[in-house]
Design a binder for these strands. Structure first.
Length: 423
RNA sequence: GGAGAUGUCGCCUAGUUGGUCGAGGGCGCGCGACUGGAAAUCGCGUAGGGGUCAAAAGCUCCUCGAGAGUUCGAAUCUCUCCAUCUCCGCCA
């Protein structure tokens, strides 16, 4: 959520920022400003009446004690009470309307974000390694997985439905090995490991920005106001909701494994085969709570921390800065890490590292104090996949495939796998 | 899932025949005095958010788990929800 004061003081720059996102929100912003003005005027009116009420309320007991006639003052109080009720009712409506509109406005992109209409204008920042060379047509990971008997989408379709997978044998072990390796690596670099709940309530989902706008993309539990988490970002960021953190503890760095659940209605047809777009997948997430002055440095190191695991796995990848038109709703700046996928003959997103600045912190009321005497101010929240596990399996199967159909196990995973090759 | 109890300012606690209580005390914390320094002691201060204001100060409004209600007026009464504790049931 953007600061209403920012919209009030510089509406034109916010409008332009939305246009850079390829969204025209001029009308919404103008409506917010109109409501805001009406709301504040009414609020001042109500406050004045409440002040009169409070004052009289303190005088009444004294008058009664003195045995004076309270008839006239009571009549006035009765009148005030009605007026205040009317004002407060109208105010609540205005506040709700304003809130709803504010919730619909995405974050303002950072000045370093390349301006562009969509993902075709993302900017490549750096590359690691070179695309794995194959003297033959590399097979797709779903064919490799099926041939090795380690991936079974058909059984999952029977047991649950489309876009789920069974992993079997060394496939299941590979999945487990990867997220253990990720957690071990990140905890060695200062991240505290968290194992979160896989369901979150509405307040949490609103805090990180999944709600109210994207409710149809979420799995909601029937009869409860709980949602299956789409990412560990939700529970881990909300861990500090409504808290005032100690500046001395910043940055707070967490890593968390979780299953992630996404309904993603309407994305059928593309990337539907294999492990790329599933309703349930595993991910290790990195989350930071940072001093606003340092959050962009923290974004660089967070991205580097995510890259590290791919380097250790010796998977070729590149890092791209998302253009303003491709940026996620809550993000001010995002780097995508894309791993090389031989059967696609292109790079594919495996991690998304973002600085949300105070956009989530404002919704979730996550603040800090530099000194006990200071006013609490909003922290900056950041997160990034460190990294997606299912897509890592896909990348390993494809990049490490051998002509005989077997798959070499990356060196760093061998202690976890207990073998050198999957065959 | 059933029954009972509880939910106040970082922590503990006072306050429930409704009014001068947004709230007293203790601890903790901050600043100061004392000290060579410290402890002890003493003094002062110590929640968050909104409005007004160029800004600060000041003034003012809201928040006693959350929300709704009764009332001129609610921490105190009523209702709903949430959380915690105890006992019972069920269960990996």
């Amino acid at each position: 959520m953007l600061d209403i004061k920012r919209i009030r003081t510089s509406p034109d720059s916010v409008k332009q920022a939305m246009k850079n996102r390829n969204k025209n929100m001029d009308e919404v912003i103008d409506r917010i400003l109109a409501i805001d003005e009406e709301r504040r005027a009414l609020s001042t009116q109500a406050d004045e009446m409440k002040a009169e009420q409070n004052k009289a309320s303190k005088e009444i007991p004294a008058l009664k004690a003195a045995g004076q006639d309270t008839g006239p003052i009571m009549a006035r109080m009765k009148e005030l009470s009605e007026l205040v009720k009317g004002c407060d009712g109208k105010l609540a409506e205005l506040e709700a309307a304003q809130q709803e509109l504010l919730y619909s406005i995405p974050n303002v992109p950072h000045e370093t974000v390349p301006i562009g209409k969509d993902d075709t204008e993302n900017k490549e920042i750096r590359k690691y390694g070179t695309p794995t060379p194959f003297p033959y047509d590399p097979k797709a990971h779903w064919d490799i997985g099926a041939a090795l008997g380690i991936l079974d989408p058909e059984a999952a379709a029977k047991v649950t439905g489309a876009r789920f997978h069974f992993y079997r044998g060394l496939g299941a072990r590979l999945e487990r090995s990867i997220f253990n390796f990720y957690l071990d690596t990140h905890t060695q670099h200062g991240y505290t490991e968290i194992f979160p709940p896989f369901m979150a309530n509405r307040a949490s989902m609103t805090g990180t920005g999944q709600l109210p706008k994207f409710e149809e993309d979420m799995f909601k539990l029937e009869g409860l106001d709980y949602f299956l988490i789409p990412t560990a970002e939700v529970p881990v960021t909300n861990l500090h909701r409504d808290e005032i953190l100690d500046h001395a503890n910043l940055p707070i760095k967490y890593c968390a494994y979780s299953a992630c659940f996404r309904a993603e209605a309407g994305s059928a047809g593309r990337d539907t085969r294999g492990l790329i777009r599933q309703h349930q997948f595993n991910k290790v997430e990195l989350v930071k709570f940072a001093d606003p002055e340092k959050s962009y440095d923290e974004l660089e190191t967070l991205t580097a921390d995510a890259e590290r695991v791919l380097q250790l796995l010796e998977l070729p990848y590149r890092v791209v800065a998302l253009s303003s038109g491709d940026l996620g709703f809550s993000s001010a700046k995002t780097y995508d890490i894309e791993v090389w996928m031989p059967s696609y003959n292109r790079y594919l997103e495996i991690s998304s590292c973002s600085n949300f600045e105070d956009f989530q912190a404002r919704r979730a009321a996550i603040r800090f104090k530099k000194d006990i005497k200071d006013k609490a101010q909003l922290v900056h929240t950041l997160n990034g996949s460190g990294v997606a596990v299912g897509r890592t399996v896909a990348a390993i199967l494809e990049n490490y495939q051998n002509p005989d159909g077997s798959v070499t196990v990356p060196k760093v995973l061998r202690p976890y796998m207990g073998c050198d090759v999957i065959r």
